[in-house]
Amino acid sequence: MSNAVKDLAAHGVSVWLDDLSRELLESGDLQKLIDERNILGVTTNPTIFANALAKGDRYQSQVDALVAKGADVDSAVFEITTDDVRAASDVFKPVFDATNGQDGRVSIEVDPRLARDTDGTIASAKKLWATVDRKNAMIKIPASVEGLPAITAVIAEGISVNVTLIFSLERYRAVMDAYQAGLEQAKAKGIDLSTIRSVASFFVSRVDTEIDKRLTAIGTDEALALKSKAGVANAQLAYQAYEEVIAAARWQELAAAGAHVQRPLWASTGVKDPSLPDTLYVTELVAKDTVNTMPGATLEATFDHGVIKGDSITGNYAAATETMNALAGVGIDYNDVVNLLEVEGLDKFEKSWSDLLGTVTDELERAKARA
């Protein structure tokens, strides 16, 4: 039987789950999602880990062991999260093998407190890569200005990278440049480029949430008619930029040396506005060599009633440009929006990391009381 998730695969879209917990791993539910929902990878972030640790007692025995050996909170968080990612990587190993390394990927993010620290990000990425010690892992690095040289340096070491928190077309082009620069350095070192993979996580729904708020405040008929159109249009124009980059001579030379494209990944695909179709950021963002990472609810909605009609991106560049021009025409400052979203995104991840540290601190204290 056909379903929307399989239809996405037929059109070159890999579906990854935006969730991970020890419960998913130990219950067998992650394997079930691979088997029954055709998911091909997993992305994580500090919020996901904080939520996982706050629920249930799946981590209790490990926390007890960590207390017994005198681990502090930072090392406890590092060990817990890398253990989960390593275990998930093992679950996805057959997918990794079957897709020749394209999918079966599990992403783990560098400490978000390092987002403005290039050298710290590089060191964190290397440590995570070495600790997880799985070829199908990916290290998530935020696309902050300071993150760009870190992306290049980490790729140059042969480490696969998921670049996260991309909101603007300008920053996305800088990310693609950083990836190519890293590949060029890796090639100069004699590293086999075919072993390196990367995705660029372009955020979608958050763009609509912020712009729709501003359109509502403007309040004219012209402004209100543009609600919930920016996120998709922005992402479609990102794919246009991607096509331009991979058609250029610089990329063609890298591809000839064995390099793989840095696939656009649609992130923040859960629909926030209940008046919108719950599969909006799936059905409207279909094109080959892309990834759509979905929270569980979006995955189930797509599987249940998503309708995939084929490529919904490449024929819409003119309309997307028109939408973005119309937004500027009613007073939406695109640069102000994307800059705000980046700052907010980094702040949210840092707060989630703080929550995660707090949760683990509480668990460590409880374990000490039990000992």
Rank of each mutant, 00 (worst) to 15 (best):
A4N: 07
V5R: 10
D7M: 12
H11L: 07
S14H: 08
L20G: 04
E23P: 00
E26T: 09
S27N: 06
D29S: 14
I39E: 06
P46V: 06
N51T: 13
N51L: 09
N51F: 03
Q60I: 03
L66H: 02
V67F: 05
A71W: 03
A71Q: 11
A76C: 09
V77M: 11
E79Y: 00
E79I: 05
I80Y: 06
T81G: 12
D83P: 01
D83W: 10
R86G: 11
K93G: 06
P94R: 09
A98K: 14
E109D: 14
P112N: 04
A115Q: 03
D119F: 00
A130W: 08
D133I: 03
N136A: 03
I139C: 04
K140H: 13
K140E: 10
P142D: 11
A143L: 01
L148C: 01
P149R: 04
A150E: 07
I151S: 08
T152K: 15
T164E: 00
F167R: 06
R173E: 14
A178C: 09
L183D: 08
A186P: 07
A188V: 02
S198V: 07
V199W: 07
S201E: 03
D208A: 08
E210G: 05
R214E: 15
T220D: 12
K229L: 13
N234S: 11
A235R: 09
A238V: 12
E243K: 14
E253V: 06
S275T: 15
L280N: 08
K288T: 14
D289M: 09
A297K: 11
K309S: 14
G310M: 05
D311T: 10
A328H: 08
D333L: 05
V338D: 06
L340K: 14
V343P: 07
E350F: 07
E363Q: 15
